[in-house]
Every structure is written in C-alpha cells, then in structure tokens.
Design a binder for these strands. Sequence first.
DNA 1: CGCAAACTAGACAGTTCTGTCTATTTTCTT
DNA 2: AAGAAAATAGACAGAACTGTCTAGTTTGCG
Lengths: 192, 192
Amino acid sequence: MPAAETASPKRDHLMATAWRLFYRDGFRAVGIDLILAEAGVAKMTLYNHFASKEELIVALLEKRDRELRASIVETVEAAGKSPTKRLLAVFDWLEEWFGGADFNGCVFIRALSEYPEASHAIHRTAWNHKVAVKEMLAQLCEAAEAKNPAGLAETLSLLIDGAIVAAHGTRETGAARSARATAAALLKLATG
Amino acid sequence: MPAAETASPKRDHLMATAWRLFYRDGFRAVGIDLILAEAGVAKMTLYNHFASKEELIVALLEKRDRELRASIVETVEAAGKSPTKRLLAVFDWLEEWFGGADFNGCVFIRALSEYPEASHAIHRTAWNHKVAVKEMLAQLCEAAEAKNPAGLAETLSLLIDGAIVAAHGTRETGAARSARATAAALLKLATG
DNA sequence: CGCAAACTAGACAGTTCTGTCTATTTTCTT
DNA sequence: AAGAAAATAGACAGAACTGTCTAGTTTGCG
C-alpha cells in the first residue's frame, strides 16, 4: 500500500520524465504509455503512486509551483537590499528563463489553456500558482512603498504573463526587457 | 472535387460547430466525430472541405483573426476622433469581451499552448494573430503621437495578453480595467 | 534469513482517435 | 429532364488512449 505522497526514487523519476514530456508536447498530447516507456517504469507503479493521469498532472503543477517560487525568492534575495532592485530582479529572472534552451512557455498558462473549464482541478491548481506569484509581487511592492501595492502587483502580473506569452510566440527574450522597463516606470510613478 | 476554400453553407455550419466545441473544451479534447455528430454532417463532407483536423483548426483561427480584428476596428471607429480615446477603447472592448457569457480565454493563446512547438502550423497561425494585433496597436499609438509607438504597442500587447490570462483564471473583468488604467498612464508618459 | 512492500511485464477491456473507402442519395445547374 | 457535383451513412483500418488485473520478481529492512 503505497502512501499517496510518500517520496520515493521511482516516483521522482516518473515525475521528472512526465514533466519533461508534458512540458515539451502538452498534457493531452502525451499518453501515459509514453511516459512509462521513457521512464522505464511499469504501469502499476504509476497507478500506485497516482490515482490517475489528472492527479499526476496536479502533483507536477504543485511541485513546479514550489520550485518556481523558490527560484524567484532566491533571485530576489541575491539582488540585495534595495526594494526597487529586488522588485526588478523578478524581470531579470524572467529574461533568463526565456533565454533557456528548453523554454516552452509557462506550464500554468498552458494548463489553463488545455483545461479551460474553471472548475477543473488542473485549471484551479494552475491558477493558484498565478495568485501566489501575485502575492509575492504585492509584498515586494509593499516593501518598495508603492502607493497601491496590490494594484501595482496586479499590473506587474499582467506584464509578466503577457511577456511569457510573447516569449513563447517569438522565442526571444525581448519581452522580458520591455516588461522590466515598464515595471521600472510604473514603480517610479507609484512611489514618486 | 470540392475547391479547398469555396464558401458553402455546410462548410460554414461545420466551422461554426467546430469553433464552439474547440473553444469550449480545447482542440485535442474534441474529436472529429463529436463535431460531425453535433453538426449533423457526414465525415466525408468534412474531409472534402479540409484536408485534416489541423487544416480545419488553422482555417478557424484565420477566420477568428479576421473577425476579431474587425470587431476591434469597429470599436475604435465608434470611439470618435480623439486618439487617446481610440486607443483606450481597445481596453473597453476587452472588458466587454471578458464579461461575455461564453468567454473562455483567448483561442490563440490556447492554440499556442496546445501546440507549443514553434514550427507547428497552428502555433504559427496563432502567433500571426498576436503580431497583427500589435501592429494595430502601433498604428493607434502613432496616431496618439507617442514617442516610441512600437515600444508602447509592445507593452500594451503584454498588458492585453496578461489581462486575458487573468480573466480566464478569475472569470472576472477586473483585469481589463487594470490594464486600461495602466495603458492610460503609460500613454500620458509617452506623450507628455 | 525471511517477510512484506514495492516493482515488474504484459495481457486485457473498452473506448476513442483520425482518416479512408464505398455505394447511395440528394441537390444544383443547364 | 439529365448529368454533374455534393452530401449521405456507415463500415473499416490501425493506432492510441486510460485504467485494471494477475502472477511473478526484486528490494529493503528487521
């Protein structure tokens, strides 16, 4: 009886393989059988760790959410003490992400797209991530003493998601710099 | 021998049904058979008008691109002569779209997401639309005598796509108003 | 060692998928 | 009215899909 959330090497390997294939080709485009073949794992092992493909996807999104936010925090911390620099560091992080060899859009936007219904577990999990990131931004805006931190964070979220879509369409990093420049201008307005 | 692009009632009806189902559930989630059953059309009729499901999707995206841009132009023209009002009318158009009962995200962003590979015909068609909209925005920015019209149009594009993603996640229209307010502030900066 | 948990291969069910083919009927045009 | 074009129903192929089940093997731990 495998406890649903027990860490295990097989489970981790399965998730890593599933992540790679889902992110490359899409959730519906990739079948369980392909994941199993690429991972070299038996089907029952998957179904002992996850009740369904859907639960596997939700687990992947939750894991990615944790890792991605941790990565942003790391970048922000490395940016020093200046609240402005810390906020703008998020956009540098974006640019680096876009420039990576395997960048293929935002898995959360793609999950919202592939499972468009509001009540679907995957849709909700994906949106939860976006809300969490917006809250991170709000804290950074507050630290920067912006007049309306929640409002600025909302706007910065729009810029970020728009930039991600643009980077997915162009395969270039320019959108991150555009978004950064706009963010800097808005922050100046909001603190001036 | 059905000419590939001849207009015909059957073809139009097929496209309307396919559009409704694809937009509601997603491209990969909806099978040809369901479209045919809902449209009450024989399979060979579809394959006489479109070489494949992929070509049907491309045709739908191109049609939607034309209609959507025409709809924006209409809104802009109805907004009067003031270049500022004309530009901001795009965001009013957004808000109305988000508030519609059947809003379910942007089909182009969703197509980019479902067919993430850059070279895929559907991916490219979807991105073409975003480029075309950005060019429309650039013209409006130019008319408003913004200092860097292409740059402002790029930023406005980011805001718009970000707002669409947010509206899809929240099912609320607030993101359109946030984007509009930011656009107004940026336009003021760019013309002041 | 010895036992229990975890993992294995692979068959299997039942559905769904895109696309092709045929043979028949409807519809349009002249 | 006659012939051409378009649409029909439905079988069919061949593959892929998720999830279940069984029976045997490996692994880890006390």
